[in-house]
Simulated assay, not measured.
Amino acid sequence: MFFDSMSEFWHMGGYGFYVWLSFGATLICFVGAWAHTVYTRKKIIAGVRSFQERRARRKSAAKTERVL
């Protein structure tokens, strides 16, 4: 579809509001999904790191108990 001016492009034959609203809603959904993924990944990595540290402390404590 060709437009004679930028104004016609933005108005899109009277449907511009709905077209740009749908683009905006889609963009918001994509950004929200991306942000949720990043947040969840950070939480999972922090949980795994915490688990590994806890495991190392317990292993170290078990070695100390055997020595005593």
Score class of each variant (00 low, 15 high):
W34P: 00
T40Y: 07
V48K: 07
W34Y: 15
G14W: 01
D4T: 09
S60L: 06
F30Q: 13
S5V: 03
L68R: 13
A61S: 12
A62T: 11
F3M: 10
S60P: 00
F9H: 07
R49T: 15
V31D: 02
D4C: 05
K43A: 07
S50H: 09
F2G: 15
L21R: 12
A61C: 02
W34V: 14
Y15E: 06
V67N: 02
Y15F: 06
G13S: 06
M6T: 14
S50D: 11
R66Q: 06
Y18S: 07
F23C: 14
G32V: 10
G13D: 04
E53P: 00
F51C: 07
R58D: 05
K43M: 12
I45T: 08
I44H: 03
G16V: 02
W20C: 03
I28S: 01
V48H: 03
R66C: 00
R57H: 07
T64K: 06
L21M: 10
A35S: 06
A46F: 06
K63F: 03
S7R: 15
A33D: 12
A56G: 00
M6K: 11
K59L: 11
F30H: 08
V67E: 05
F3Q: 08
T64G: 00
G47C: 02
V48L: 05
Y39H: 14
F51M: 10
F3G: 09
L27G: 12
V19H: 15
Y39F: 15
G24H: 04
G14N: 05
K59S: 09
G47W: 00
Y18V: 03
F17A: 13
M6F: 15
G16F: 01
F3H: 14
Y18A: 12
F17Y: 08
F23E: 03
R41M: 08
L27S: 10
M12T: 01
Y15M: 13
V31R: 04
V19Q: 07
F51W: 14
R54H: 13
R55K: 15
R54V: 08
A35G: 03
A25S: 10
I44V: 14
Y15A: 04
A56V: 02
E8I: 01
F2E: 15
I45G: 00
A61T: 06
S60H: 10
R58C: 02
S7L: 13
H36R: 13
A56E: 11
K43E: 10
G14V: 06
F51R: 11
L68E: 06
S5M: 07
G14R: 05
A25N: 05
V48S: 01
G24I: 03
S50V: 04
I45M: 03
E8C: 09
A62E: 12
F3N: 11
H11Q: 11
F2P: 04
E65T: 12
Y39W: 14
S22I: 08
E8M: 07
T26Q: 09
D4N: 12
S50P: 00
H36Q: 11
K63H: 07
